[in-house]
Amino acid sequence: MELLKKCCKVRANSLLESVIALTIISICLYFAVLIFASVYTPKTSAKFYSTQNKVNELFYLSQIKSDSISNDENENLLIEEEAINENLKKISVQYKDSTQFKFEKSFYVQIPK
């Protein structure tokens, strides 16, 4: 019986070390999950950048070939022009991609005199 008590005796130091180690591991995992959640947002996805590039492309195409973009009846594309003053106009481009994510970007263009 005494032999069994000696074999099953757990020292307090090893138990305390285990609790401290688990606490440190839990804190590290908590920070890892926070960082992971803040890095992987919808604004950092490849689809977001693809849609943003498509909007930029449509704006530049509308500046080069304005008649071909405006004649295209695309329900996913909306280009609005607004005169701010006699030297400046605001062009807003709204585009919906295949996932129906609506992306809007505004461009300011200086009108030469």
Results as ranks from 00 to 15, higher is better:
2 E>C: 08
3 L>N: 14
4 L>F: 09
4 L>E: 14
4 L>T: 13
7 C>L: 11
7 C>M: 13
8 C>L: 13
10 V>G: 10
11 R>M: 03
13 N>S: 11
14 S>K: 04
14 S>E: 11
18 S>K: 01
19 V>A: 09
20 I>D: 02
21 A>K: 11
21 A>N: 07
22 L>H: 13
25 I>G: 11
26 S>W: 04
27 I>L: 15
27 I>A: 14
28 C>A: 12
30 Y>T: 12
33 V>I: 15
35 I>N: 06
37 A>K: 11
40 Y>K: 03
40 Y>N: 09
41 T>Q: 14
42 P>A: 10
43 K>W: 04
44 T>A: 05
46 A>V: 12
48 F>E: 10
49 Y>F: 11
49 Y>G: 05
50 S>L: 10
51 T>V: 12
52 Q>A: 09
53 N>R: 05
53 N>T: 10
54 K>S: 04
54 K>N: 00
56 N>C: 05
56 N>G: 12
58 L>P: 00
58 L>A: 01
59 F>N: 00
59 F>D: 04
60 Y>T: 02
60 Y>M: 01
60 Y>W: 13
60 Y>H: 04
63 Q>V: 01
63 Q>P: 00
63 Q>F: 02
64 I>Q: 03
65 K>I: 12
66 S>L: 00
67 D>M: 10
68 S>H: 13
69 I>Y: 01
69 I>S: 04
70 S>R: 08
70 S>F: 01
71 N>I: 05
72 D>F: 09
72 D>Q: 04
73 E>C: 00
75 E>M: 03
76 N>M: 07
77 L>N: 01
80 E>K: 07
80 E>I: 04
80 E>M: 03
82 E>W: 06
85 N>M: 14
85 N>V: 15
86 E>F: 08
87 N>L: 07
87 N>M: 08
87 N>Q: 03
89 K>V: 00
90 K>Y: 06
90 K>V: 13
91 I>Q: 06
91 I>V: 12
91 I>S: 07
91 I>M: 11
91 I>Y: 03
93 V>R: 01
94 Q>I: 06
94 Q>T: 12
94 Q>V: 03
95 Y>K: 09
98 S>L: 01
99 T>I: 06
100 Q>E: 05
100 Q>C: 02
101 F>P: 04
102 K>A: 02
102 K>N: 06
103 F>W: 00
106 S>K: 15
108 Y>T: 07
109 V>A: 10
109 V>C: 06
109 V>L: 07
110 Q>I: 15
111 I>R: 07
112 P>Q: 10
112 P>K: 13
113 K>W: 15
